[in-house]
Design a protein around this nucleic acid. Structure first.
Length: 309
DNA sequence: TATTTAACCTGGACGC
DNA sequence: TGCGTCCAGGTTAAAT
C-alpha cells in the first residue's frame, strides 16, 4: 500500500521523467478519479494543457506537480495534486503502450515523449488541480490548498520533534491511532506504523498521554529508521498494486518484522507474531516485546481468531 | 471541541 | 464452476 516510502519512490521517478515538460493533452477516462476536482473534467484539462511541470513535490502521502505558465517566470500558483489511495499508480509509459485495465487519467506531453498515466484499481486515489498557498508555518514554502491540514512528515527537515511530542502527549488517544493521524504526523500508514512500533517496543494501544518525551523521541527514531530503509528498498510491494513509475516492485516486504507475519517468529525474541483488530485494520506485533498496556486489556483487544482454511 | 467510527471501492482468496 | 462473503486500508464525513 502506498505510504511515504512508496510515494517518495514515485516522486523521485516522476521528477526524473516529467519535470520540465509541457502538457499537450489530458484524457479523463474515469470521473471518480477526478472527483475532488469539483469543477469537473473539462476544467481540469483546461488548467493543465500548455502548462510546464516545474518540479515534483511531496508531503506525507500526497504528491504535487507545480505548474508554470509560458512567458511567466514567477512562482507557480497552481499544481496537479495526486494521491494514490490504496491502489493508485502513476506510471510513465511510452506512447502507444497498451492501456492498463484501470487506466483513469492520461497526460500527454508536447515533446511526444513518454506519457503520464494514473491507474487505480480501487479508485480511492485521484488527481486534481489546486491552488498553491503558503504553508502556515513557513510563508516561503507553498503547498496545495487542499492539504494545508496535513502535517509535515518525519523526514521533512522542518519537522519539529518537540512540538510533535507536546501535541502527542496532550492527546487522550492511543499511540497507533495517533501515528496514523495525518494531521499530526504524515506519511505513516498501517504497515510502517506496525513496523515502527515493533522497533520502539511499544504496543499501539499505549495511551499517548502516558508517554514520556524520551519515549516519543524513541518512536520518532524508529519511524525514521523504518521509512528510510523502505525508501532504499523502493517501498513495499505485496502484489501488483504498488509499483514505481516504471512498473517495478519494491522489495521492503522482505524486511518486514511483524506486518503480515502472523504466527511467524519475532525476529528479536522468536515469539510468534500476533494479529489484532484495531481501527477496522489488522495490527501485527510481538506479544513479548510489545506487551499490551494493562488498562486497555479488554475483550475487544484480544487476538483475532485465525480464519479457518 | 476532540475523538472515534463507518463508508467508500474492487478484486483476490476462500468456503460451500 | 459459480456464488456469496471476507478482507485489504487512506481519507473524510458523520457520529459520539
Amino acid at each position: 500500500m502506498p505510504e511515504l516510502p512508496e510515494v517518495e519512490t514515485v516522486r523521485d521517478g516522476l521528477d526524473r521523467w516529467v519535470t520540465g515538460r509541457v502538457v499537450a493533452a489530458v484524457e479523463v477516462r474515469h470521473p471518480r478519479s477526478i472527483r475532488r476536482h469539483v469543477a469537473g473534467a473539462d476544467d481540469l484539462v483546461a488548467r493543465l494543457v500548455g502548462r510546464r511541470v516545474t518540479a515534483v513535490s511531496r508531503r506525507g502521502k500526497y504528491l504535487w506537480l507545480p505548474l508554470g505558465s509560458p512567458g511567466d517566470d514567477g512562482p507557480p500558483d497552481e499544481c496537479l495534486v495526486g494521491h494514490l489511495g490504496m491502489s493508485g499508480q502513476l506510471l510513465v509509459q511510452p506512447v502507444g503502450t497498451p492501456d492498463e485495465k484501470h487506466l483513469h487519467v492520461r497526460v500527454r506531453f508536447a515533446d511526444d515523449g513518454p506519457e503520464l498515466r494514473f491507474v487505480d484499481q480501487r479508485t480511492f486515489g485521484g488527481v486534481l488541480v489546486d491552488r498553491l498557498v503558503p504553508t502556515p508555518d513557513r510563508a516561503a514554502e507553498s503547498v496545495p490548498a487542499g492539504i494545508v491540514h496535513i502535517a509535515r512528515d518525519p523526514l521533512d527537515p522542518a519537522f519539529d520533534d518537540d512540538a510533535f511530542s507536546a501535541r502527542l502527549r496532550r492527546r487522550d488517544s492511543e499511540l497507533k491511532r495517533a501515528l496514523l493521524d495525518q494531521s499530526l504526523i504524515s506519511g505513516i500508514g498501517n504497515i510502517y506504523a506496525d513496523e515502527s512500533l515493533w522497533r520502539a517496543r511499544l504496543h499501539g494501544r499505549r495511551r499517548t498521554a502516558t508517554l514520556t518525551r524520551a519515549a516519543v523521541i524513541t518512536v520518532l527514531a524508529s519511524v525514521r529508521e523504518v521509512l528510510r530503509e523502505a525508501i532504499r528498498a523502493g517501498g513495499t510491494s505485496f502484489d501488483a498494486l504498488y509499483v514505481n513509475v516504471n512498473g517495478a516492485s519494491g522489495y521492503f516486504d522482505r524486511s518486514l518484522a511483524v506486518y503480515g507475519q502472523e504466527g511467524r517468529p519475532c525476529p528479536r525474541c522468536g515469539t510468534p507474531v500476533r494479529r489484532e483488530q484495531f481501527m477496522n485494520r489488522s495490527s501485527f506485533s510481538c506479544p513479548v516485546c510489545q506487551p499490551r498496556p494493562r488498562a486497555t486489556r479488554t475483550p475487544a483487544a484480544q487476538d483475532t481468531p485465525r480464519r479457518s482454511g
